[in-house]
């Protein structure tokens, strides 16, 4: 019943996640926090047989681009979209990119301290093809002959 936090580098994220994936661990949660001018990203994984819990912790500055793990764990895109919308963490190659519309709220990056928000530079569209859900493109794109 371990419950530990392991600090890793951003570059080692995918490798570490892949190791846990092959061990058959379950993705428990991903969350972001902002502390002393940098992001703290926590990726938690759980093993239901031994009840172990492991959190991979990444410390990275604002505007660093984080690779998505949704290719390994398809449920990860909810958490990654959440990080992106509430904290402004830039995540690339998400399997499903909600384009800041998972949380339909007025405030932008509300969890980031106000003085830091201006520092965030929006990356050009990093979504992979097919990542934008069809329902968000609007019904108008449906071919006319089909709608009759």
């Amino acid at each position: 019943m371990k419950n530990e936090i392991i600090v890793i580098e951003l570059a080692d994220l995918l490798e570490n996640v892949l190791v846990l994936k092959t061990k058959g661990w379950r993705l428990s949660q991903i969350c972001a926090a902002f502390r002393d001018g940098h992001y703290e990203l926590s990726y938690s994984f759980a093993d239901d047989e031994t009840l172990d819990y492991e959190t991979l912790r990444i410390n990275c500055p604002i505007n660093s681009v984080v690779p998505s793990i949704s290719e390994f764990y398809s449920a990860a895109d909810f958490y990654e979209n959440e990080m992106k919308e509430l904290f402004g963490v830039e995540v690339k190659m998400m399997k499903r990119d909600y384009h800041r519309r998972l949380y339909r709220i007025k405030a932008e990056m509300p969890f980031l301290p106000e003085e830091e928000r201006a520092k965030v530079v929006r990356q050009p569209d990093t979504a992979i093809p097919g990542a934008i859900p069809e329902a968000m493109k609007g019904v108008s794109e449906v071919p006319k002959e089909d709608t009759e």
Binding site: Y103, R104, I105, A135
Partner: peptide, 16 residues
């Protein structure tokens, strides 16, 4: 064939 959930009607920002 596809579902897009969205969040925001009950979002209060309680964690903040």
């Amino acid at each position: 064939i596809d579902v897009v959930p969205s969040i925001g009607f009950v979002h209060r920002g309680l964690e903040s």
